[in-house]
């Protein structure tokens, strides 16, 4: 398998860290080398929350890297914040219920296309995307998923990040979905026991994100 270098970014409260940590834990449980590091700087207060995860069969070097194989962006600002991690091979998974698909020119793979995303784009999101919007590849290496809308309409807003995680698993194939469920049970053991519906929602969210990507890729 390839050495996956994942950057996930989102607004505080979107559950980026929990998602990243669960992915790393699942990979660890599956016997792979996994390294997760949160960006815990000033950003953790009211800014973009950033998480780096690496998964590999081989030993993992530095916790930080320059070019990601997968960028997961959950808000417009997150796309800006992660722009520096993009390379020609980077796959971008983004929440299309919040973010307009950035247009990428084949000639200009890099920062420029993301600098054009103004915060106002955020305001337009609700009217722009409807809940039936299919997952689509919006450009080279771009994968859109209206995870926030799906969560709100189908399950529960709080499991939004698990839809994204399901999609990440589907895109990367680093672990089986079952391993992620196992990791989640390990992490949330007590809360799952107190609230069986929470477990149900989380697992459904994982499956939903996973299936959506599989469908898209099959198209």
């Amino acid at each position: 398998m390839r050495h996956w270098k994942v950057v996930a970014a989102g607004e505080g409260g979107q559950g980026v860290q929990a998602m990243a940590e669960t992915l790393a834990l699942a990979a660890y449980r599956a016997g792979l080398n996994a390294l997760y590091i949160p960006n815990f700087g000033i950003e953790q207060r009211g800014g973009v929350s950033l998480a780096l995860v690496q998964v590999s069969e081989r030993a993992i070097g530095a916790p930080k890297f320059r070019t990601a194989s997968l960028v997961v962006a959950l808000s417009p600002r997150s796309l800006e914040r992660t722009a520096g991690y993009l390379g020609p091979e980077t796959v971008i998974l983004y929440d299309s219920s919040l973010v307009d698909a950035p247009r990428i020119s084949d000639r200009v793979v890099g920062l420029q296309s993301y600098d054009t995303i103004a915060p106002e784009a955020f305001a337009e999101r609700i009217s722009y995307h409807d809940q039936r919007m299919p997952v689509r590849a919006a450009g080279r290496g771009m994968v859109a998923l209206p995870a926030s809308d799906l969560a709100r309409q189908r399950l529960h807003p709080r499991v939004f990040n698990m839809i994204i995680l399901g999609a990440v698993v589907s895109l990367t194939g680093v672990v089986e979905l079952g391993a992620v469920k196992g990791a989640l049970e390990e992490k949330l053991n007590r809360r799952f026991r107190q609230d069986p519906q929470l477990k149900e929602h989380n697992f459904q969210a994982l499956e939903l994100g996973y299936a959506r990507i599989k469908e898209t890729m099959a198209v």
Binding site: A24, L25, Y28, N33, A34, L35, Y36, I37, P63, K64
Partner: peptide, 10 residues
């Protein structure tokens, strides 16, 4: 260092 403090690995 701070990375070692906060990162998770096996």
């Amino acid at each position: 260092d701070g990375y070692q403090a906060k990162m998770r690995e096996a």
